[in-house]
Computed example of a mutant assay.
Amino acid sequence: MKKVTLALMLAGAASLVMADGAALFKKCAGCHGAKGEKKALGKSAVIGGMDAATLESDIKGYQAGTLNKHGMGMLMKGQVAGLNEAQIKELAAYIHGLK
Rank of each mutant, 00 (worst) to 15 (best):
residue 90 E to C: 02
residue 53 A to F: 08
residue 74 M to S: 14
residue 21 G to P: 04
residue 93 A to P: 01
residue 60 K to Q: 13
residue 60 K to M: 09
residue 66 T to A: 07
residue 95 I to T: 07
residue 90 E to M: 00
residue 44 S to P: 03
residue 53 A to I: 08
residue 44 S to R: 08
residue 88 I to L: 03
residue 95 I to Q: 00
residue 57 S to V: 00
residue 55 L to A: 04
residue 61 G to Y: 05
residue 98 L to N: 11
residue 54 T to M: 01
residue 42 G to D: 15
residue 62 Y to L: 01
residue 48 G to T: 08
residue 73 G to I: 11
residue 70 H to D: 11
residue 31 C to M: 06
residue 92 A to F: 08
residue 86 A to S: 14
residue 86 A to N: 12
residue 72 M to R: 06
residue 31 C to V: 05
residue 3 K to G: 06
residue 21 G to E: 05
residue 74 M to T: 15
residue 63 Q to A: 01
residue 89 K to L: 05
residue 8 L to F: 11
residue 71 G to L: 02
residue 99 K to N: 14
residue 90 E to G: 02
residue 85 E to P: 03
residue 10 L to H: 06
residue 70 H to N: 15
residue 19 A to L: 13
residue 82 G to R: 13
residue 31 C to G: 05
residue 81 A to Y: 06
residue 56 E to Q: 14
residue 71 G to P: 03
residue 22 A to P: 01
residue 25 F to Q: 01
residue 29 A to K: 10
residue 40 A to I: 07
residue 68 N to C: 07
residue 57 S to T: 14
residue 59 I to S: 06
residue 74 M to K: 15
residue 21 G to N: 08
residue 61 G to A: 04
residue 73 G to E: 09
residue 25 F to P: 00
residue 68 N to M: 06
residue 52 A to Q: 10
residue 25 F to W: 09
residue 9 M to S: 08
residue 45 A to F: 01
residue 52 A to E: 11
residue 2 K to P: 10
residue 9 M to I: 15
